[in-house]
Amino acid sequence: MSAAFFSRDIVSLPPSSPGMRIGLFGGSFNPPHEGHRLVSRECLKRLDLDAVWWLVTPGNPLKDHSDLAPLDARVRAARALVAGPRCHITGFEAAHGFTYTFETLSHLQKTLPGRRFVWIMGADSLAGFHHWERWDEIFSMMPVAVYVRPGSTRKAAVSRAASRFRHGRIDESDARLLATLDPPAWVFLHGLMSTLSSSQLRSRK
């Protein structure tokens, strides 16, 4: 569906102001589930963030889209799952035709100066992060928080991205400082985990 057919409510960005510490949590959320909510809650607390924005992508270029639910349905499902003033859900990437995370993050930094953005992803994403478009530039663009995922910790720790930017990794005890640091800076967060995955939930239907 063309971005022109989405309502402003679906593709608008949440309100923000300079100085805010904002976690950017991107994904297909197909469907959103309790594991996503857990990551948001833990990152809000442990990174001392003011807000977390779920960036619901029109479609991951590295994944099969044959079973991808419509964007508006995924945004509304995520909003129904996560209620609270500090977690916001948006499908704004569709309004700009963005395909890659690098494009999204570049746009946010240029159009919303003064915000302290942190990119949030799971350890499973870090394991294959070197396949992402301009992945090394993302690490050099803003701080990154990597949240532990079942079965992915070991692969993530020895991944190409982790090795390339090992000098930028901070101790987990300093996680609250991450949003204030100049990139490359990243942290590996261990803690509560959920065994749920979107692919498993789709297979149950």
Rank of each mutant, 00 (worst) to 15 (best):
F129W: 06
G114F: 07
R164E: 11
Q109P: 04
G151M: 13
S194I: 08
G59F: 05
P61M: 02
R154W: 05
L62H: 09
I89K: 07
A77R: 14
S173T: 14
I138T: 02
V118M: 10
A78G: 11
I120N: 01
P70F: 03
W119L: 15
L196F: 04
L126K: 10
L13M: 03
A162R: 01
R160N: 13
L177E: 13
Y100H: 15
V56H: 01
R166D: 13
M142Q: 05
I10N: 00
E133Y: 14
S2K: 07
S173F: 07
M1E: 12
P85V: 10
R160E: 15
L47D: 15
R169Y: 06
G23T: 04
V158M: 07
V187T: 00
M142E: 01
S106D: 13
R149G: 10
A51D: 13
R149I: 09
L201F: 09
S16K: 08
R166N: 11
A145Y: 06
G27K: 13
P70D: 06
A51C: 14
H88F: 10
L126H: 11
S17Q: 09
F139W: 14
S106C: 10
A156F: 03
T90R: 07
P31Y: 01
F92I: 12
A73E: 15
M121A: 06
D174I: 00
V75P: 01
G59Y: 03
A179C: 07
S28H: 05
Y100G: 06
F102G: 02
H36T: 06
R41E: 04
G35W: 02
H131T: 15
